[in-house]
């Protein structure tokens, strides 16, 4: 394959990765929690591993 072909392939793969990320992210957010896991929280009641409430992931967990 020519170098231009490789470049197009690589960019396509990167775009696919990005798309996968966005789709899976949205899907993960939208999937309801399994039964019995609705009130799961970090043991410390506060996610200290990623700082205080600024981590978006933590806020997401809290909302759900």
């Amino acid at each position: 394959m020519s170098s231009v072909g490789y470049l197009i392939l690589a960019i396509a793969i990167l775009v696919i990765l990005l798309a996968t990320f966005i789709i899976s992210f949205v899907a993960y957010r939208r999937t309801p929690l399994p039964k019995g896991c609705e009130h799961l929280k970090m043991d410390d009641q506060k996610c200290s591993s990623c700082g205080h409430s600024e981590c978006s992931f933590y806020k997401g967990e809290e909302k759900e």
Binding site: T20, F21, S24, F25, A27, Y28, T31, L33, P34, K35, G36, C37, L40, K41, M42, C47, S49, C50, C55, F57, Y58, G60, E61
Partner: peptide
């Protein structure tokens, strides 16, 4: 995200023990 999605859908038991830590791994 995919692993989290899979666990959420297929294995609530696994989600119970790993689920809240998954988003932190990114």
């Amino acid at each position: 995200q995919l692993v989290g999605l899979f666990i959420k859908k297929k294995s609530p038991a696994l989600y119970e023990s790993l689920g809240i830590y998954l988003p932190l791994i990114t």
